[in-house]
Simulated assay, not measured.
Amino acid sequence: MNRKGLTITYIVKAFPCNYDEGYGNVSIAKKIHRGSGETFLFTSRQALRYSIVNWLVEHGIWKYAQLTSEQGVKQYDPKQLKKEFPEEADLFGYMITAGRGRQAQTRAAVARLTHLISFEPWFGDQELLTNKNFADRLGENPDMANIETGYGYYKYSLSVDLDKVGKDENFGHNLSKEEKIKRVCDLIEATKFLYRDIRGRREDLKPIFVIGGVYHKKSLFFHNAVNVIFKGSKPFINYESLKQVLEAKYTVSEKEIKIIGDLTHLGIQKGEFGDDFGITVSPFDALDRIKEEVEKAFNEKK
């Protein structure tokens, strides 16, 4: 395999999708603070992983791996891992403890997610919640609670080490090429129509912009280059920062140099941003083209 690194960066638009421990009757959204003094909402990569795996299971594409707590730790069942190699254990890794004094068996994740981080600062918005309907039906006063909220653009990135998919030294697995391709393409398919169920809401995490491809180098090429800026009330994707990456080159061999843009696919939702830069491909079509590149990469001769 010549091209071993898959990377895709997504832009989505949603309300907060992850919460920290609250206090009293206030639910606290996950957030971080920057040196500028601004506060930004985020959703952890663990929460994204949870939603992606759930999506695949709910749609009958994957099955949950079997779990056990025999060693006092909640983990994948090693008895199953000896017989078969479930998709989530393959792509997202594991650590199997074997008891006191015995070395654990570990597999690093080959599919990795960044946090889902907002482009726009949080302004302290809160939503008042009540159980007024139930209270009225009982003829009593309602209970009240507050939840931190906001609405805006977020980005996250997915990367996959294609050369490590389906191979596991701990339990001796090496899946067929066709199964390896299917697992990676299923993962990309989940991101096309992803949602997250949170606090009675179903948040739409389908992409409104994607950029990525399959490369000879493993790198999050676009994660820090994708930015949304506002001109007045209209959002724009900062194409200048993307252009620098797209025009960058890397060396494959002494005789071969690649331009990143030649291997990259972009997709954008029409009418969402102030300028689509002449891109006519939808995010869904762009992801389908990246899936085709995954298949080609597995079939390439060294």
Rank of each mutant, 00 (worst) to 15 (best):
L194R: 06
L138C: 09
D143I: 08
G261V: 00
I260Q: 03
T97G: 14
K31I: 06
H115E: 15
D168S: 11
Q46T: 11
M95P: 08
L162I: 00
I279T: 13
D20W: 03
Y153R: 02
S282E: 13
F15N: 14
E179A: 13
G24T: 07
Y64N: 13
K132M: 14
T114D: 03
R202T: 12
V165A: 04
A29N: 08
A108I: 10
R45L: 10
D186T: 09
K155F: 01
V228E: 00
G212A: 06
M144S: 11
F193A: 11
Y10S: 03
V57N: 08
K63W: 02
L175E: 10
G37C: 09
T191V: 06
R107K: 15
K301G: 13
E247A: 11
E295Q: 15
F273R: 01
Y94P: 01
I260W: 06
V294E: 00
Y250N: 06
I237V: 10
L6A: 02
K231Q: 11
E84P: 04
G24C: 05
N141W: 14
Q126R: 15
R183V: 04
H33W: 12
K296A: 13
L158Y: 00
S176R: 08
E169T: 14
P235D: 00
F134L: 14
E292T: 07
Q103T: 15
L91T: 00
I117R: 08
G24L: 10
F230L: 00
E58P: 06
R34W: 12
F40E: 03
K31V: 05
V57H: 04
N170Q: 13
K180E: 05
E88T: 03
L220Y: 07
K30N: 14
D262H: 10
G101P: 10
F230Q: 00
I147P: 05
E58S: 15
P86A: 10
K243I: 04
E292Y: 02
G139Q: 11
Q66L: 13
Y215C: 00
G213Q: 01
H33L: 15
G212D: 02
E38T: 03
K164I: 01
F277Q: 14
W122V: 10
E70P: 05
F85T: 02
Y215K: 01
D186H: 14
Y154D: 02
K270N: 13
K217I: 14
V12E: 04
E272M: 14
K249C: 09
K83M: 13
C185F: 01
K296P: 04
F171C: 08
R183P: 04
Y94V: 01
G93C: 08
V226I: 07
R201G: 03
E295W: 07
A135K: 06
G5D: 01
E178I: 11
W55R: 15
K31W: 07
H265S: 12
R45H: 12
H265M: 09
Y215H: 02
P121S: 06
F85D: 01
F273W: 06
G172I: 11
S44L: 06
D136I: 12
I11P: 02
A286T: 04
N146A: 15
I260D: 04
I268W: 01
S36N: 14
S36R: 03
E272H: 10
Y215N: 00
